[in-house]
Design a protein around this nucleic acid. Structure first.
Length: 423
RNA sequence: GGAGGGGUGGGUGAGUGGCUGAAACCAACGGUUUGCUAAACCGUCGUACUGGGUAAACCGGUACCGAGGGUUCGAAUCCCUCCCCCUCCGCCA
């Protein structure tokens, strides 16, 4: 959520930047600033009223002590009116604050200057590409066929147990997944990230803190009995470890990584694009999260991009990096790079990582602050990225590394799998 | 799930109706002392909103003692609801 002061100071620049999202902020900003004016003047009136009441209370106390009951009861009458006034003002204030919040919730983050204008994923900007797209031999198969052929993923079984989008991994398929998790975590911890195991269910405050609420409520599974959400990404529990924290600037940056399953309702998704591992209700992901000093956050973002690159280089998969355009940029993000691996058999790119800088947008909701060099309390910058989301990496491996004899496991994973071939 | 106890500033912890935004101690920071270190001593030391001031320093107002309500002229202190923690019992990977 944006800060009112920032909106006031950068109104025109923000409006212009938000146009890249095709978001017209003009009217909303005016409403926000007006609501903020109302908030202040009401607050001022309320404070003055309370101040007067406090003084009277003190006087009454003194009078009682001196045994001047009558004088005291005269003053008491006065406070009755003040009390009424302050009650009214307080109610008005709460209504205004509520309105202001509601307005702010509807405004997405301001895109960074690097973000290209655009409407859809068509307008994303490819900034990097690496790896040869293998020429597959005759009879090359999509991953869901390969999964069946080698009996490593059972989609039908998942249907039976739960429903569509909950595959069962089996044998070498299961082992390969476990291997990837270990490998990714090892890469991340070697790069300085601290590994965490976090809850897979979160409360409302957490879902709100990272921006899943109120924007994406329908995308999360919700446990009504206990009022908890199944996490759509480790970003939620990991980032929320720092909710309501005020950390010294010397403790920045904070680097975290964690493996969790991710649960997404994916309401409204259908068709060929959700086939196989392309889009699941439950999938595994290793996430990296950074809490950064505002001066360093974009350097950190580049660092994260390079880190993910390194992993993909080692996996020797063909991939590209996109800078998301305004129309495709997530609600909370200021700048996002998507990583995509090429699905050879499907002849399309699959998103496997999304690395974003949220600047203070999440921190503002989270109340995640640091004490800076001058002793001032400021909002920190939060960043996160996948390193990596498993199913599509698996799809990429299966499809790109297929040979007529079987699937060749990327060398870097072999120490983790204990086998180098699936046949 | 049942019974009881408790949630106070970075930490420990005092505080049962006004003199308490909150003692004391520890930690932290600044300084004095010192060949260096330690010790000692002095000082500073919560957060948010807001008014004045040069958006610094500083001065003032309001709110905050788990959260939200209530009683009262006045609440950390009394009452209600919820959340969390601890102990015992039950259940259990």
């Amino acid at each position: 959520m944006l800060q009112v002061n920032d909106i006031r100071e950068n109104k025109e620049a923000y409006i212009k930047a938000l146009q890249k999202r095709n978001f017209d902020a003009n009217e909303l900003f005016n409403q926000v600033l007006q609501a903020d004016e109302d908030r202040r003047s009401t607050q001022a009136k309320l404070d003055a009223t309370l101040s007067e009441a406090n003084k009277l209370s003190k006087d009454i106390g003194d009078l009682f002590k001196n045994g001047e009951q009558q004088k005291a009861s005269i003053l008491k009458e006065k406070t009755g009116k003040l009390k009424e006034t302050s009650k009214e003002l307080n109610e008005a204030l709460q209504a205004i604050v509520e309105k202001l919040q509601q307005l702010l919730y509807t405004i997405p983050n301001v895109p960074n200057t690097l973000v290209p204008a655009g409407i859809s994923e068509e307008d994303n900007e490819e900034v990097f590409r690496k790896g040869d797209i293998p020429k597959l031999s005759e009879g090359a198969l999509p991953h869901w066929e390969l999964a069946k052929k080698y009996d490593i993923i059972d989609f039908e079984l998942g249907n039976k147990i739960t429903g569509a989008g909950f595959p069962v991994y089996k044998g070498k398929g299961a082992k390969l997944q476990r291997a990837m998790i270990s490998y990714f975590l090892d890469k991340n911890t070697a790069a300085g990230y601290t590994e965490y195991q976090v809850p897979h269910l979160v409360n409302e405050a957490s879902a709100f803190g990272t921006g899943q609420l109120p924007d994406k409520e329908g995308q999360m599974y919700f446990v009504t009995e206990d009022n908890l959400f199944l996490i759509p990404t480790a970003e939620v529990p990991v980032t929320n470890m720092f909710r309501d924290e005020l950390v010294p600037h010397t403790s920045l940056p904070i680097l975290c990584t964690g493996y969790t399953p991710c649960f997404r309702r994916e309401a409204g998704s259908y068709g060929a694009h959700v086939r196989g591992l392309n889009r699941l209700h439950q999938f595994d992901k290793v996430e990296i999260v950074r809490i950064e000093h505002p001066d360093n956050s974009y350097k950190a973002l580049d660092g994260m991009v390079n880190h993910v690159k390194e992993i993909l280089d080692e996996l020797q998969l063909p991939y590209r990096i996109l800078r998301l355009c305004g129309g495709d940029l997530g609600f909370t993000s200021a700048l996002t790079y998507d990583f995509e691996v090429f699905s050879t058999a499907q002849d399309r790119w699959l998103e496997i990582s999304s690395v974003s800088n949220f600047e203070t947008f999440q921190a503002n909701r989270l109340k995640l602050r640091f004490k800076d060099e001058h002793g001032k309390n400021r909002l920190a910058h939060t960043l996160n990225g996948s390193s990596l989301a498993l199913p599509r990496v698996l799809a990429g491996i299966l499809e790109n590394c297929q040979t007529p004899e079987g699937i060749k496991i990327p060398k870097v994973l072999v120490p983790y799998t204990g086998f180098d071939f699936i046949n």
